[in-house]
Every structure is written in structure tokens, then in C-alpha cells.
Design a protein around this nucleic acid. Structure first.
Length: 352
DNA sequence: GACGCGTGGGC
DNA sequence: TGCCCAAGCGT
């Protein structure tokens, strides 16, 4: 793209963004901390999904100081249903560092901000450009899709090295006077016009500068490889109710899938094995086998695996010392525990 | 560089 | 239904 085209492209993109952008909660602030929260929530997550979470989160934690030392379980509850739960733990670690090392002020340069937990190349550029107006690249999936079409680039965007091509392109194209609107404009264009399927080229404000529109095929870009089959796991889930009407729950390990979230007792189903007996041994409880009642059978798809769950309600006749990370809770207590969506589904059925 | 890490929506 | 995806990051 020559210099004249570059200038016109910038101007058309920024003007379109200023006129057509959606009114989103995080666009009503320039507080770096609040922009940061929104960017973390938006990682791999749709705008419509994020909006209510963002509003609740900012109301409860309006400043870096208010978030820095809140209990993790409370944070996880605020994040419940959003997914990728390590995001909120990393966010708090980063925010705490800002409070302790930077006096509560989010760094305004890429080197320092990139040291913060959970702040990668994209989030760094997004905060720097949106909150501070710095001409820094912020390349996400939208930007790679839009620019792969505008510049007719067919490099495989599933390969990490391909992102460098787009970071370089943005560095050359970005409007130094309107870095925030330029970066957000690329993403907004990707969300509203230059969509993955059926791009609305006839409505596109930068169609005149789009190489793929004139010389190629926008809908065939970007090129993206990869796609592995997910693993299937079958579980029996037992909602164990003691004689006081409390329910046995277990806290998941502090690392890995759904780290530190709470669940009902979950046993991987094995062929020719009585899982009820296994539960009694493992959790030091005597169950009334006749009371076993089927609650719900369903599948839950994760990004990399699939759970097939059969769930049951069963009464405990006798309970003894609980294993580590397990406890009996009342319904009121359970309402305050962070649980993954499949457990919420089961719990909702129990209370229906 | 490959893989682990959630969820809900669109087609 | 099954697959794709959506404002990525840590290990």
C-alpha cells in the first residue's frame, strides 16, 4: 500500500469507527485499569457475553486497589460462566503488581506493561493505544482477518509466526494521531462488517483499499489450518446429601482445568465397576444405595475435550472425616461457591 | 511451537 | 448435529 492509499485507508477507517461504533460500557472510560479488565474479559469471548460481567465486575472492583487483595473465591464467583478462569487469577496478580510496584498506575510503555501477568502482546497494545493513545499494534483475530483481506495475505494465521506479519503491518499503517480509534476500528470492522463468513463488503468503509475485494476473494481469507479431535471422558456425578440436608462438594486442584472451582463428587466411569462403592471408600461415607435417583444426563464441550455426565442424587446414612478439599455445604453456602457450568446445570435441576 | 484452557452462538 | 468460532495467554 503506497503512502497516499495508507493515509486514505487510515482516514476512512477512523472516521467510520467514530461514526458507527457500538456504545459499549468500556468505551465510556479511559481508565487504564478498566480498559484492562475489559480486554481480559474479551479474550476469546463475545462482546454480548462480556457486557453484564464487565458491569458487575467494575461495580464491585472499580479500581486496581479494590481488586488487588480480594479473595480468589469471590473473584471466581464473579467470573463464573465466563470461562478461561485463569484469566481472573492472572488479572489480579497483574493488578497487585501495579499497586505494589507502580503505585497503582498502569505502565504506559510496552516493556513494563508486558511484564504483568496475563498481559500478552495483544492486551498490551490494546491498553497502550486505547487508554494512553500510543501508536502500538494490538493484533487479535479480527485484525488478522481484516488485514489478511485488505492486504490479500494468505499466510496461515494458525501459525504463531504469522502474527508478526500483521504486527508489522499495523505498525506501518497505524494512525499516530488516532491510535485508539484506528486499532478499535480494525476490530469493530472485523466484528460488524468484515466478518468470518459472509463479509458485508458492499457496506465496507475501506472497500476501495481492499486488495482481496478488487483482486482476490475476501470470503476465502484468512487461511487457517489446524483442528484436532477432542477427547471424550465419561463421568458419574453424585450429589450426596447428608442427614442435615447438606451436600458434599469438592474443590478442584489449583492448576489445570477449572482450577479451584467447586463441584459435586465426580468419578470417571469405568466398565464393570460399582462407582457407588468407590465413592463410599474414597469419600469416607456410607450411602443409602436405594435412594439413588437419576437427575440429569448430558454432554459438555470444552475447547479441547468433552465430558459425558450422568448425575445422581443419593442420601448419606453416615458421614465421617472428609478427605482434603471436600466439605458439606448448605444450599445457601453453595450459592456462593464458584462452580463450572456443568455443575450449575445439575444444581439448577436439583432445585427446579 | 504446540498444547491446555470455557463457554455460548451461528449455521 | 457437529463444527466453527470470539477482542489470547501461560507453559
Amino acid at each position: 500500500m503506497n503512502y497516499q492509499y495508507t493515509k486514505q485507508f487510515r482516514q476512512a477507517l477512523v472516521q467510520w469507527f467514530l461514526e458507527e461504533q457500538r456504545d459499549l460500557p468500556w468505551r465510556r472510560t479511559k481508565e487504564p485499569y478498566q480498559i484492562w479488565v475489559s480486554e481480559v474479559m474479551l479474550q476469546q469471548t463475545r462482546v454480548d457475553t462480556v457486557i453484564p460481567y464487565y458491569n458487575r465486575f467494575i461495580e464491585k472492583y472499580p479500581t486496581a486497589e479494590s481488586l488487588a487483595y480480594s479473595p480468589e473465591e469471590e473473584l471466581l464467583k464473579m467470573w463464573e460462566g465466563l470461562g478461561y478462569y485463569s484469566r481472573v487469577r492472572n488479572l489480579q496478580a497483574g493488578v497487585r503488581e501495579v499497586v505494589e510496584v507502580y503505585g497503582g498506575k498502569v505502565p504506559d510503555n510496552r516493556v513494563d506493561i508486558s511484564k504483568l501477568k496475563g498481559v500478552g502482546p495483544y492486551t498490551a497494545g490494546a491498553i497502550l493505544s486505547i487508554a494512553y493513545g500510543k501508536p502500538e499494534h494490538a493484533v487479535d483475530g479480527n485484525v488478522m482477518r481484516v488485514l489478511s483481506r485488505v492486504l490479500n495475505i494468505d499466510a496461515d494465521i494458525a501459525l504463531p509466526k504469522t502474527k508478526k506479519i500483521f504486527e508489522q503491518a499495523v505498525t506501518e499503517l497505524i494512525d499516530h494521531e488516532n491510535a485508539s480509534s484506528f486499532n478499535q476500528g480494525l476490530m469493530e470492522l472485523g466484528a460488524l462488517i468484515c466478518t468470518p463468513t459472509s463479509p458485508k463488503c458492499l457496506l465496507c468503509p475501506v472497500r476501495d483499499y481492499c486488495t482481496a475485494f478488487h483482486e482476490g476473494d475476501p470470503s476465502s481469507l484468512p487461511v487457517k489450518s489446524k483442528k484436532l479431535k477432542t477427547k471424550n471422558i465419561e463421568y458419574d456425578v453424585y450429589i450426596i446429601r447428608d442427614q442435615q440436608g447438606r451436600f458434599l462438594m469438592e474443590k478442584r486442584p489449583q492448576a489445570g482445568l477449572l482450577a479451584n472451582m467447586w463441584q459435586f463428587i465426580m468419578i470417571e466411569r469405568q466398565a464393570d465397576e460399582n462407582s457407588l462403592t468407590k465413592v463410599e471408600k474414597q469419600y469416607n461415607v456410607t450411602l443409602e444405595h436405594n435412594s439413588k435417583e437419576t437427575i440429569l444426563s448430558f454432554s459438555h464441550v470444552f475447547s479441547h475435550l468433552k465430558w459425558h455426565i450422568d448425575s445422581y442424587l443419593v442420601d448419606a446414612v453416615e458421614t465421617n472425616a472428609n478427605p482434603e478439599n471436600t466439605a458439606y455445604f448448605t444450599k445457601e453456602q453453595i450459592a456462593n461457591l464458584p462452580m463450572p457450568v456443568p455443575m450449575l446445570k445439575i444444581w439448577g435441576k436439583i432445585n427446579a
